[in-house]
């Protein structure tokens, strides 16, 4: 089996320099829309193209609530006055108070990942975290199969009716202190599934969220940023946010 060892060494270091330095490779993020100055008519046209109600008009400026963006790119590709697009990936927000993990947990946390009805892409991006490109072990993050060892509950998916009990069981089985990191637009607000009677409107309907990572799906770097925000090692971004309507109330 020695050829595997040599092969592994020969591959060299692929790991991203983030968070020490920004990642500059192409294709690591789908980007997010940004607000811009538009007059009322143009703004309405832009808002009409968006199926996810990301944009709202405030003081002659179109503001983008990126937590709702589902990456359909219609605002950029078919709107007459397209939205600006930002190829960033530091997206994580903290909706409430400081999470305040005690310092013992800053450098090494175990993450329990729960798929609460995810379409597969968020989960695939979470799986990429263990990929040599991202390798979250170097940051002290470990994915654990059991909630008993977990400090962070990472939820993807809109929380389907069938999964909500399991999600609560996982949360209850975790020791304190514990944080909930909601990853992806579905976990934040239900995304395209919010209106379904078989889904809750995101994790908020079931559990308190500590860190929100928008994106559909958020790229691995955005998830890493979310975890760094959860442990207090990076600052959250400040975004204009509007409260969600509670979903899951039926069509």
């Amino acid at each position: 089996m020695s050829h595997w060892v040599f092969n592994g060494i020969r591959t060299g270091i692929k790991t991203s320099a983030y968070p020490r330095r920004p990642e500059t490779a192409a294709g690591v993020t789908p980007g997010l829309p940004r607000g811009r100055k538009l007059d009322a008519g143009e703004a309405k046209a832009l808002m009409d193209t968006c199926p996810a109600e990301v944009f709202r008009l405030e003081d002659g400026r179109v503001l983008a609530d990126v937590r709702r963006c589902i990456h359909c790119y219609r605002c950029m590709r078919i709107a007459p006055h397209p939205a600006l697009w930002e190829q960033s990936y530091e997206w994580a927000l903290q909706p409430g108070r400081e999470t305040g993990f005690v310092s013992a947990f800053k450098k090494s946390i175990n993450i329990c990942v729960v798929d609460a009805g995810d379409c597969g892409s968020c989960l695939n991006e979470v799986r990429q975290l263990n990929n040599p490109y991202y390798n979250i072990h170097r940051l002290g993050f470990f994915i654990t199969p059991t909630p008993r060892h977990a400090d962070v509950l990472l939820v993807v998916g809109p929380v389907t009716d069938h999964m909500s009990l399991a999600l609560q069981k996982v949360y209850n089985a975790m020791p304190t202190p514990k944080l909930v990191v909601a990853v992806g637009v579905c976990a934040l607000s239900g995304g395209v599934f919010a209106e379904s009677f078989a889904c809750a409107g995101g994790v908020t309907d079931v559990l308190p969220i500590d860190v929100e990572v928008p994106g559909n799906p958020p790229p691995p770097l955005a998830i890493i940023h979310g975890l760094l925000v959860a442990t207090g090692r990076k600052a959250p971004v400040d975004m204009p946010a509007t409260p969600y309507q509670s979903g899951g109330s039926g069509p």
């Binding site: 294709g27 590709r77 990929n131």
Partner: peptide
């Protein structure tokens, strides 16, 4: 090692998709 090698390939392809279409999973 094989899993890592295949993982590198997968991420390469995700990046190729992202660079080409804007989205890593070809949405939109």
């Amino acid at each position: 090692v094989a899993a890592s090698g295949a993982g590198i390939v997968e991420e390469d392809l995700l990046r190729i998709s992202g660079e080409l279409t804007g989205h890593r999973y070809l949405f939109g």
